[in-house]
Write a protein that binds this DNA or RNA. Structure first.
Ligand SMILES: NC(=O)c1ccc[n+]([C@@H]2O[C@H](COP(=O)([O-])OP(=O)(O)OC[C@H]3O[C@@H](n4cnc5c(N)ncnc54)[C@H](O)[C@@H]3O)[C@@H](O)[C@H]2O)c1
Ligand SMILES: NC(=O)c1ccc[n+]([C@@H]2O[C@H](COP(=O)([O-])OP(=O)(O)OC[C@H]3O[C@@H](n4cnc5c(N)ncnc54)[C@H](O)[C@@H]3O)[C@@H](O)[C@H]2O)c1
Lengths: 218, 218
DNA sequence: GGTCGCTTGTGAAAGGCTTCACAAGGCCAA
DNA sequence: TTGGCCTTGTGAAGCCTTTCACAAGCGACC
C-alpha cells in the first residue's frame, strides 16, 4: 500500500487520513461517486493542497481533471490505516465511561470489536453487557493472551491506570487508548494515546481567554 | 500573564501546557515543592528543552540552579490557560456518553461546571441528574443565554450535531467540544474541537500496521 | 569569598509540515 | 482533432516547531 517502504508519516497526517475516511464513508452513504481534493478539504476542515500532499505520500489515487473515486479512495485509506481487518479490543474498567463504550456501536462499525471487558468489582464480573463478557480483572493477562487481543482501552480510575497499562503491555497488547487523565509509561513497543476530556476543555478555555477571536483554524 | 501581547501560541503548546498543569497538580498532592524542566518532561512525555521553550513563550517562572516552584508554576499555568475562574458548560444529548459526562467529577474539579443539560427526548426532560437540570432541547437558546453559558458539549447522534452546533453558536457559546464523529461547521468566532474515539483507535491501528514494531528495548 | 554543580532562558540551527505554483493529464464539446 | 476547463501530483519555498548548545544565575559548601 505504501510505495516506498519506510517513509515517516506524521501523526497529523494519519489523523487527517482518518478524517478523510470518515467523510468518504458519509459520501458513500450519500451515493456520491467522485470527490475532488477541494471538496474533501471543505468537508474535513483542511486545504486541497494538504489533501493531495497527504495522499501523495502513499501513491497516486486520483484522476486529473476528475478527482477521486469515492469508493476506491475509501478502500485505499482503509488499507493504509490497517482497517482491512477487524481489531480485537479489551476494555478495562466498566464504570460510567466503560459502560458507554460497551454500548457504543460506532466502534464495531469502524472495525473495532470489544472482545472482552474487565473490572475489579466482583459485583460486575460474570455479566454479559452489550454482548460482551465481563471478566474479573485478575484474568486480564490470561484472557487477552487467549483471545489474541491487540488493543486495550483503559477506563479505570487514574490511580489504577498505570498498573492496568503494565498488565496490558505484559499481555502483549500493542496499543492502548487511555481515558484516565494521567500520563502513563509503557515499553517502547507499545503505543499509548490518552483522551482527556477536561484537557480539551482547557484548550478551549485558552482560546476563549487569550481571546483574539482568531482566524478560526484550518 | 503573557508578556508580549500577541504572540501566536500553537495548539500543541497549549496542549502541553495542560499536560504540565495536570502533572503539577499531582505533584501538589504529593507535597512536592520544586520541579525541574527535566522532571516535568519525564512526567509529561516530552523533553526538557521543550518544557522550557513552552514556558518561555509566556515569561520566566523558574530559578536557575533550582527549577520551578510547583505551586507557583501551577497557578501561573492556570492563569495562562484561563482557569483562574470557573466555566459554565451546556451539555446537549444525555444518552450513554452524556450521562457518563454528567457524572464525571473531574470536570468540576478542573473548573468546568455543567450548568444545564438538554435532550430532545421528552421522557428525560425535567429530571435532575447528578445535580444538573435536564431541559428540553427546545429551550437551549433561552437557557444558554439566561445562564451565560460559554462552552457547549455535543453528545447527540451525529445527524443532530450540526443543528445543535448552529444553535449553540447562535446562543452565544464561544467554543464547543464535539463527541459526534462528524466534522461540524461553525462561524469563525466559535472554536470546535472534536473527540472521536474510533478515530483515535484508527491512529493506533495505523501504528500497529505500518508496524515497525520498533527495535524497542535499549 | 570562591569554586562547583546544577538548571534556566534563549538565540541559532535543524528539522518538519504546509502552502505555493505549475506542468501534466483527463474530459467534453464542437 | 483542437481548445477550454478542470484537477491531480509534486518540487520548491515558506513557515513553524523542535532541538541544540551555552552563557548566566543560583545555592551549597569549603
Ligand atoms: N465518566 C466520564 O464521563 C469520563 C469521561 C472521560 C474519562 N473518564 C475517565 O475514565 C475513568 C473511569 O471513569 P468513570 O467515570 O467511568 O469511573 P467509574 O468509577 O464509574 O468506573 C471505574 C470502573 O473501573 C473499575 N476499576 C477500578 N480499578 C480497576 C482495576 N484495577 N482493574 C479493572 N477495573 C477497575 C471500577 O470497579 C469501576 O467499575 C477515569 O479515569 C475517568 O477519569 C471518565
Ligand atoms: N457511547 C459512547 O461511548 C460514545 C463515545 C464517544 C462518542 N459518542 C458519540 O456521542 C454521541 C451520543 O452517543 P450515545 O452513545 O450517548 O448515544 P445515545 O443514543 O445513547 O444518546 C443520544 C442522546 O441524544 C439525544 N438527542 C438526539 N437528538 C438530539 C437533539 N437534537 N438535541 C438534544 N438531544 C438530542 C437523544 O434523545 C439521546 O438521549 C454520538 O454522536 C456518538 O457517536 C458516544
Amino acid at each position: 500500500m505504501s510505495p516506498s517502504g519506510q517513509r515517516r508519516i506524521s501523526e497529523s497526517t494519519v489523523r487527517r487520513l482518518s478524517v478523510y475516511l470518515r467523510f468518504l464513508r458519509e459520501l458513500t452513504r450519500q451515493g456520491r461517486e467522485l470527490v475532488s481534493s477541494r471538496q474533501l478539504a471543505r468537508g474535513c476542515g483542511t486545504t486541497p493542497a494538504q489533501v493531495r500532499k497527504d495522499l501523495s505520500l502513499f501513491g497516486s489515487f486520483g484522476k486529473r481533471g476528475r478527482g477521486y473515486t469515492v469508493d476506491e479512495l475509501r478502500r485505499t485509506l482503509e488499507g493504509i490505516l490497517g482497517l482491512g481487518r477487524r481489531w480485537r479490543v479489551a476494555l478495562v474498567g466498566v464504570g460510567k465511561i466503560g459502560s458507554a463504550l460497551l454500548g457504543y456501536q460506532d466502534l464495531a462499525r469502524r472495525g473495532f470489536d470489544i472482545a472482552a471487558a474487565f473490572d475489579s468489582d466482583p459485583a460486575k464480573t460474570g455479566q454479559v453487557v452489550s454482548g460482551v463478557r465481563l471478566y474479573s480483572a485478575e484474568r486480564l493477562t490470561e484472557v487477552v493472551r487467549m483471545q489474541h487481543i491487540e488493543l486495550g482501552i483503559i477506563a479505570t480510575p487514574p490511580e489504577s491506570a498505570q498498573a492496568v497499562a503494565d498488565e496490558l503491555a505484559g499481555a502483549g497488547v500493542g496499543a492502548i487508548l487511555n481515558f484516565a487523565p494521567v500520563e502513563i509509561d509503557v515499553p517502547d513497543n507499545v503505543t499509548v494515546r490518552t483522551m482527556d476530556v477536561a484537557l480539551e476543555l482547557e484548550g478551549l478555555s485558552f482560546v476563549l481567554t487569550s481571546g483574539d477571536r482568531m482566524p478560526s483554524r484550518k
